[in-house]
Design a protein around this nucleic acid. Sequence first.
DNA 1: GTCTATACACCGATAGAC
DNA 2: GTCTATCGGTGTATAGAC
Lengths: 193, 193
Amino acid sequence: MNSTRQALIDSMKELLWLRGYDATSPNQVLDHCGAGKGSFYHHFKGKKALAIEAMNERVDEMIDECDAIFTADIPWLKKFETFLLQPRAGIKGCPVGRLAFDPSMADRDLREPITRYFSHLQYRITNELMEAQQDNMIDSFFMAEELAAMIISSIQGGYVQSRALNDAQQIEHSCRGAFALLYVHTTALNESF
Amino acid sequence: MNSTRQALIDSMKELLWLRGYDATSPNQVLDHCGAGKGSFYHHFKGKKALAIEAMNERVDEMIDECDAIFTADIPWLKKFETFLLQPRAGIKGCPVGRLAFDPSMADRDLREPITRYFSHLQYRITNELMEAQQDNMIDSFFMAEELAAMIISSIQGGYVQSRALNDAQQIEHSCRGAFALLYVHTTALNESF
DNA sequence: GTCTATACACCGATAGAC
DNA sequence: GTCTATCGGTGTATAGAC
C-alpha cells in the first residue's frame, strides 16, 4: 500500500510549514504520522528526497488556488481583491515563502519548488496587470513586473511582520494597504474619463 | 580587554545575518572570529545570551539608519524615495527580517529585538504618512497603518522573492513598485487641486 | 514493508589546567 | 582570559531480523 508513503509526505508537508526544513528531523516526521524508521528509509532515499516531494505537492496546490482566482471569469480588480483579501494564517506564515531563509535554500534541488511557485505567481499577476493596462484600467506609467512584485510582497512581507510582531492581523493590514492603493488609483483613473 | 568579547558579538551578528540563529553554532562563531570555547563561555552565559546582545546591536544600527531618513529636513515623498530605493543585498536578506521564521522566534527573549525593530519602523512610517495626510498630500481615504505595513512589506517581501528566485534584483522591483504607486497617487492628487 | 538496534557526527555546555 | 578535553543529547542514516 501507498498509505504509509503518503502519510509520510503529509506529515512532512505540515512540519515544513510549521518548522521549516532544517529544523525538521526524520524522527519528528515519524512521531507525527506514527510510522517507524524502517518505513521512512524504505519509501524515501532520505530526508531531502521526502522534503522535495512534499514541497512539490504543496506548491502544486498553491498554484492551483492562485490559478482558480486569476483564470475566473470576474473583473480584474475583483481578482486582486479576492487574492489579496483572502483570510491567511499570519502566524504560521506562507507554506512556501517561510522557507526563503531556511539554510536548505543553499541546495539547488530544495530551492527549486520554491522558485517554481514564485515564478508562477509573478507570471500570473504580471499578465493580469498587463491586460488591465491594455484596457486602460491601469496607468501605463507603471511597470507591470514591479507592481506584481509589490503585490506579492504585500503578502510575503505581511507574513514577516505578523511573525515579528506576533500579531496575526499584520498581514491583513499589509494586504489591505496594497489593495487600497490599487483600488484608489483605478477609480481615480476611471473618473478622469 | 573587551576586544575578544566584541569580536564574538561581531561574528555572531554576521552569522545571524548569513545563517540565522538556529543554524548558527557556537563553534561556527568561534571559527569566524578565531576565539576559543573558553572565551565564549567566559564572556557570555551561552549562545542565546550572545545572540540577544548581537541582535540588539544590529537593531540599534538599523533603527538609527531609519531615523536618519525620516527625521531629515526633506520633503516627505523624498523620504520614502530614499527609504525605499536605497541599495539592498537582496540575496543576503534583511538582517532582522530574515529571522522571522527562525525556530528561535518561539522564544520570547530572542524575538524581542525583532519585535522592537518592526514596531519602530511602523511607528516612524505611520507618523510620516499621517502628517502627509494632514497636509492633504495623501488621500485621507487610506488607513496610514495599512499603507505603512504595505511599504515595509515591499521591502521584506522583496527580500523573500529575491531569495526564492535567487535574483538580487527582485527586491528592487518590489520597492520600485511600491514607490511608483505612492508617487503617482500623490502627483494625481496635486494635479486635481 | 516495518521493526529495533546501532553507528557516527555535531550540537550546546562544562571542567579544569594554564 | 583562554585553552583543550570531555559530557550527554540529538541529528541523519544504516543493518539486519521479522
